[in-house]
Design a protein around this nucleic acid. Structure first.
Length: 575
DNA sequence: GCCGTTTTCGGCCCGACTGTTTTCAGTCG
């Protein structure tokens, strides 16, 4: 059973306990355990079977037993029992924004509301207002929230690539406004998570009202909220809510830190602060005993007051950033400027939009020292296949392009399909002519975990495969990763010197940050690629870098931070 | 239910907002 399924069951049980009126700390414990299980890089089922699930922080003997029951029988007995007592639709009701467990339980006990449909009916018939403490406004909010759930689904999140450019545009325009002093993107966009649901902007201004007005007047603003002195909410034309907070310069660091999050990071930070007799909030750091409040203009000072080194936003998750900062063991993260080449580009030869010459010129003007053109291979289909003869011509074209050039080279490459039996769709003689071969799965995703793992391991063991592309095939929010044993793949990649790609296409980000950390810990060499299909998507390297940073990777762990001479030796065929 | 440089018991993050209240509980991030 996958960690996500175990986490889902624990999270559901938390809600059931909450509906049943359990003490809130028990509920919190289950929620926390669900989070830890979801984020575990190793199989929690296997850990539990070895009796080692208790090594996960937040999982004790009781939860380990429940996890074991779940993986053995498909259900947790206490959850089964509660489900007999409470209607299954009630868990859904608690997911309606503004309706929590307490309210849901009262709606069930007093009005018999047992599902989202019941809730809608009760609100429409104005029966909810008969309950003490709930009125017409609540009914109105419930109906609005139900409408939104129906419109877009409960968990609509936007890709980072949809949010970040808008956020940066707004920040940069507000910075240029004479009313502003400092403007920064905060929130999940600053942490470079895979998806975001809104934009948080933090600013200081000589004239806060004028800056708020500048945002309201911005051409990207479609729906304008109320303009107050602390901010002015807008929604952009592409449907992103923007939440600005404009504050005095002396607390800028506190506010930026708070609204960058993550929520889990802030919780951990406040817990640490309490052991030092300090209380942390967005307004400052209070000495509990004296009540004295310290405000800081920079985040570095905030962390410094808590005796921590500055923590990069990408590390502000429940992944050990605070512990590492306390021990002085934070990584020196890779940055966009460290990249010297890109090893996964398509051209018009297969499904790209630009020619070999256009792509190569774009790479050169970006300052890269090398670039691999890797069009699709012989079986690719959709009219984008490249037959062997055509690839041989392409190799000659690349040789001519490189002739007489210094300081920049194009590698003749291919993104070769890994067929269901693990074989490749060009013969070894042709693969041997190439400078660089990426092998990827593009078909037959729905085979067993065992079969998929063997399939990819066969490619890794091939002496002419330099790199594996987008290892799990996921499309964020649209297609789940296919079943594959990433730990085994990573170990074999490390053993054979086969590189593993972090694909920077913002829909993919594959390896994921979790898998990238697993791969790097196994000693595999990582390469950051864009999988660009045109000159306009070269900028996707920033998303590969984002995933690498969130995976704690340093430049040395990434092959294409090296100059050509060193990089070429790292290739399997170069050694 | 978990956990331990104040604890094997008694704690467990902080503040704003909302709708409904005469002082607050519930919800959210």
């Amino acid at each position: 059973m996958r960690n996500a399924e175990i986490a889902e069951a624990l999270s559901e049980l938390a809600t059931l306990y909450e509906l049943d009126g359990a003490i809130r700390y028990r509920v919190l414990a289950y929620r926390e355990a669900a989070r830890v299980v979801r984020q575990s890089p190793v199989s929690v089922e296997e850990l539990a079977r070895e009796g080692r699930a208790t090594e996960l922080p937040g999982v004790g003997e009781t939860l380990q037993e429940k996890i074991l029951a779940l993986v053995d029988t498909g259900a947790i007995p206490s959850a089964t029992k509660l489900k007999r007592k409470l209607p299954p639709g009630l868990v859904e009701v608690t997911r309606v924004p503004g309706v929590g467990a307490k309210t849901a339980r009262r709606l069930f006990d007093d009005l018999g509301v047992a599902s989202l449909d019941d809730l809608r009916a009760a609100a429409e018939q104005e029966r909810i207002r008969s309950l003490k403490g709930l009125g017409p406004k609540f009914e109105e909010n419930v109906l609005a929230a139900l409408g939104k759930l129906a419109d877009r689904g409960p968990a609509e999140r936007l890709l980072l690539s949809e949010v970040l450019p808008v956020a940066e545009q707004l920040a940069s325009d507000l910075r240029a406004d004479p009313a502003s002093q400092a403007v920064e993107v905060a929130g999940s966009a600053r942490r470079r998570t895979e998806t975001c649901h809104d934009i948080d902007l933090i600013a200081t201004a000589a004239d806060p009202a004028a800056l708020a007005q500048a945002l309201l007047d911005h051409p990207l603003a479609a729906v304008k909220g109320s303009s107050g002195e602390s901010g002015a909410r807008i929604t952009t034309h592409n449907g992103i809510a923007v939440d600005p907070r404009i504050v005095a310069p002396e607390a800028y660091g506190n506010l930026l830190q708070h609204f960058t999050g993550s929520a889990e990071h802030n919780v951990e930070l406040r817990e640490r602060a309490l052991t030092m007799g300090l209380s942390v909030s967005e307004h400052g750091i209070t000495e509990v005993e004296s009540g004295e409040v310290a405000r800081y203009a920079t985040e570095a000072e905030v962390y410094g007051r808590l005796r921590l080194a500055y923590i990069e936003p990408e590390l502000r998750e429940a992944s050990g950033g605070i512990a590492a900062a306390a021990d002085g063991k934070l990584p020196a993260l890779v940055g966009l400027a460290d990249l010297r080449g890109d090893l996964h580009w398509h051209t018009t030869l297969s499904d790209g939009h630009n020619t070999l010459e256009e792509m190569s010129e774009a790479a050169r003007s970006r300052g890269y020292a090398y670039l691999a053109v890797t069009d699709h291979s012989a079986t690719h289909g959709f009219g984008n296949d490249v037959q062997a003869d055509r690839l041989r011509e392409r190799i000659e074209e690349v040789r001519r392009l490189n002739a007489g050039r210094r300081g920049f080279r194009v590698l003749a490459g291919s993104e070769v399909n890994i067929l269901p039996d693990g074989s490749l769709d060009y013969d070894d003689e042709l693969l041997g002519q190439l400078d660089w071969v990426i092998a990827s799965v593009h078909t037959s995703f729905r085979i067993s975990r065992q079969a998929m793992t063997e399939r990819v391991l066969a490619a890794i063991d091939h002496p002419l495969v330099d790199c594996i592309g987008h290892l799990t095939g996921r499309l964020i929010g649209r297609r789940d990763p296919y079943e594959i044993d990433v730990e085994r793949v990573a170990a074999e990649a490390a053993r054979t010197g086969t590189m593993l790609e972090i694909n920077g296409n913002p829909n993919r980000r594959d390896l994921s940050e979790r898998h990238a950390r697993v791969a790097a810990d196994a000693g595999a060499t990582i390469v950051l690629n864009t999988d660009a299909h045109g000159v306009d998507t070269l900028i996707n390297m920033q998303y590969a870098v984002a995933t690498a940073r969130r995976a704690w990777l340093e430049p040395e762990q990434i092959a294409n931070t090296r100059g050509w001479r060193e990089f070429s030796k790292l290739r399997k065929r170069g050694s």
